[in-house]
Simulated scan of single mutants.
Amino acid sequence: MNDTESRLRDYLDTKAATVPGTAQGPGLLTDTSPRRPIWPILATAASVAAVLALTVTVLTHVGADKAEPAGKPAPLTSDVPQVPFTIIDAKHNRTVYDGSQKVAAPPELHGFSARVDGGWIARYYKMSKSKTDPDVTDSSIGILQPDGKYRAVSTPWADTPVVSPDHKQIAFVGRAKRGDEKNNWLAVVDARTGTEVARVSLPDVTPVLSGWNRSGIWISSGGFNKSGLAVWRPGDSTVTRVRMPAGFGAIEVNPADDTIAFGTTTGAKRCLQAAAVRDGKLDVLQEYCDRGPVAIYPVLSTDGKTMLHSADNLAVDVATGKTTKLKLPHPIIVYPKPMFEDATKVLVVTQAAGNDANAQSLYRCDVTSGECKLVRTEKKGNQIVLAQP
């Protein structure tokens, strides 16, 4: 993969709903445009047991046997989304919406993935002016501010940012120079000042950050080991390798506790699992399996008690395994992924099958009942990309 491909990634898997289960997934990318190849984060795992070699102290996690009943869900409405989202038009102009705020983003900014310090995490790419062989000449991680200006918080050539659970810090993968895939590090900076507060060297791989929760910052890559997963607590001197089941693919990290969800694909069988770190081991709380050609990109509710199987419009209760079918007129776009607003309400983007130019619609669904309400419908050619609240 050349430098332009690895930095720009302008083609962000807009056809993810038709990707075979054996295909590689895009990782933590939240933006789509026509020239973005997929990052190599889905490892070709061997048949190994789901064992987590983790020796860190873990905060208390409410397990499936102690799950507290959810309160009565709030009424389902078509109100403005409680999470930020981006509209990308046919000319690849990006506009960020967040409550009453509407911010037109500079053309160099992409991937608005979470709220932070009054703005939104963004990836900056400056391109050369060559029409025949465009190339990235500068890149960084920073914050799109409400006035439309960009404030960098990273070193040059950084990528794959994630926000801390309290939204006060940003982690990213850094590099010493452009195109250097052999000298990576994971850095944590203060979102307000950009001051670096922690750093650790990463192995000779192409790492992608997958999220941040109580267990630490989760790192996906095909090079850590056969499972391609690791976790790091800021301040530790090294990352801790994680072993996952055969066919392990994409991972979802719940910032509120130590719950994660991940997909596995072996042949035509695909599974969705929720797990938590307990006593130094990965404890699988629930598993849902079926058969199908579409890879599973897991989605977790804000309390970690519900998984969304986007490829099948299905919610799975982690405590009981009960499934609830979402009542939608069209398939859910599996990537960019849906986003939970709270414990029971999930926002999903749908599109009629058969034509990528069909209009996209945003729905709010109640995972306890399966009922859904239309929030907005976009013009043909526009894309809706949801972000972390």
Rank of each mutant, 00 (worst) to 15 (best):
S140D: 12
G249W: 04
V318F: 06
E181D: 10
A122T: 02
D98W: 05
D65K: 06
V48P: 00
R151V: 01
G25M: 01
F172H: 08
M244S: 03
A187S: 11
Y11K: 06
K269M: 13
A319H: 10
V116D: 02
F248Y: 10
R199V: 13
T18V: 09
V48C: 05
K322H: 11
T32L: 12
D13A: 07
H167Y: 08
A46W: 05
A187H: 06
L209C: 00
P20Y: 04
F112A: 12
G228F: 06
P336H: 09
Q82H: 07
A191M: 06
T60K: 14
K182D: 15
P207T: 00
W218I: 05
A191E: 10
V242R: 06
R123L: 10
D180I: 11
D138L: 00
I38D: 11
W218R: 03
P336S: 09
P134V: 02
R9H: 04
G118C: 04
P106E: 10
A104N: 05
I143F: 01
R214T: 09
I88P: 06
G249Q: 13
V58M: 11
L109F: 00
V299S: 08
A152C: 05
K91E: 15
G263A: 03
N93E: 05
R9Q: 13
N382H: 15
P207Y: 01
I332N: 03
R214A: 14
C372P: 10
I88K: 07
S33P: 01
K269R: 14
Q383S: 14
Y363S: 12
L54I: 01
V153P: 07
L109G: 09
I217F: 04
A315C: 09
T95C: 09
V385Y: 08
W157Q: 07
A171P: 03
W218A: 08
I41D: 14
G174T: 11
D303H: 03
V318A: 09
V19R: 09
A343W: 04
K325M: 14
G370F: 08
V284T: 12
A74L: 12
H61G: 00
L282M: 14
V116H: 02
N213F: 06
